[in-house]
Design a protein around this nucleic acid. Structure first.
Lengths: 231, 231
DNA sequence: AAGCGCGAACGTACGCTGTACGTCTCACGT
DNA sequence: ACGTGAGACGTACAGCGTACGTTCGCGCTT
């Protein structure tokens, strides 16, 4: 009686918490895949009955939103006041890419669920602040933020899709690629080496450079002339 | 006996086909949602037993890939030889956006599944051809194609995520937005009007203009000087 | 100290999912 | 006429999300 029933004393399970649930979900996703995540698997991970999870999370969608929130909360947004807005913007988009690299399998979840928490809004705030510092008006700042976000998201999704295709190619061999109409797909075939030898990092930087360069060329209000730092 | 058993004669069901299955799947997704799609629902749609589908489609993932393929096959890639490569690139990215508008719910499927068929490679071929025509070398052409694709994908995903957040806001009211730390989220709050009054089309065009402008400014081989049309 | 209330963990159950497997039917080539 | 192969089908199973009712133990009130 005194040794088995009060197992809470000698087996102090760390108390089920929304945070621990989300953490276990992220770990499971990263260890296996996003499709492998189920309430039952998460419960098993925490050595807990399935329905106990529902005391802390209303449903699976909310859990996934929690996962997305936790991941974006990992964004490292250092706000070095010394750096230019260009470098700030670069750092912001790169920070996004870094968490995508740290949590590759969870990234799909982030990109397909709303993140309307403070953690999700923080990068938005940072982008707007940078555009403001660069001298763009409010409407333009919002558009710039959206364009940068679109690129950050798209680059990641494209890369993930690419890896899926490459993985498929390794299974089936290259013959499935060769029966393409050599006339219609002349460039795809001709550029085969360049397409195969892909360097995700420099691809990413290339597109990012394009956007930053375009932003620099954009007319803006108080500080249109170079060399005039903002006060 | 002679009137009910040969129902194939007076009820000539159009013969189950992979194409009809995919078509039904797309219709179901667009009518309801991507999550509503299940083998059973598709079978019911076609008035057919569930397992009959498996005579034409190996599994659900393959069906989803079929959906993605069918959607990207709807890309309208007119190749007007008179238009500049800039206009061609714009038309290509806009074509992507158009199918995203025509099949909004299926777009998630497209963006999260590999499309390694001819229909999926066609826009890639087109982008490479345009970059080639503009005078970029092979490696740069591939990078440009990837940057454009990343933007096209990301703009769409971002917009979809935005609508999910707005829909959520309409449910909960704006009060959930107001308890933000007014100091940390100063710009988000200040730019509230610009953030709320979003015009997806002009947002999209803004980012696209940025990229095209950056491409124009990029140094390239044979035709670096303006005014020298290509032969 | 005794009793009460409440949150949290739990077990059961339901309807749904994808799909493996075996059967049946029918059109077609021989 | 008969074998054959393809395709439609029914059954079955494991796993899913989660609604609902029960139980258990801690903390507060009296």
């Amino acid at each position: 009686m005194t040794s088995d029933t009060p197992r809470a004393a000698d087996t102090p399970r760390p108390a089920l918490t929304r945070d621990r649930i989300v953490q276990a979900a992220v770990a499971l996703i990263e260890r296996e895949s996003a499709e492998a995540l189920s309430m039952r698997r998460v419960a098993a991970e925490l050595d807990v009955a399935v329905m106990s999870l529902y005391n802390h999370v209303p449903n699976k969608t909310a859990l996934l939103e929690g996962v997305a929130d936790r991941v974006v909360a990992g964004l490292e947004l250092g706000d070095d006041p010394a750096q230019s807005w260009q470098e700030g913007a670069r750092a912001l988009v790169r920070a996004f890419r870094k968490v995508a690299h740290d949590y590759p399998r969870s990234m799909t979840i982030v990109l397909t669920h709303k993140v309307d928490t403070a953690a999700g809004l923080r990068p938005m705030e940072r982008a707007l602040a940078l555009a403001d510092a660069a001298g763009f008006d409010a409407a333009t700042a919002v558009r710039i933020m959206r364009a940068l976000l679109a690129y950050a998201i798209g680059a990641q999704m494209r890369e993930a899709g690419m890896e899926k295709m490459l993985g498929h190619l390794e299974e089936t061999g290259v013959e499935s690629w060769n029966h393409l109409d050599p006339d219609e797909f002349r460039h795809v075939i001709a550029y085969g080496p360049e397409l195969a030898a892909h360097d995700p990092d420099s691809d990413f930087e290339f597109g990012l450079d394009l956007l930053i360069a375009a932003l620099e060329a954009l007319p803006r209000g108080p500080a249109a002339e170079p060399g005039s730092g903002r006060g």
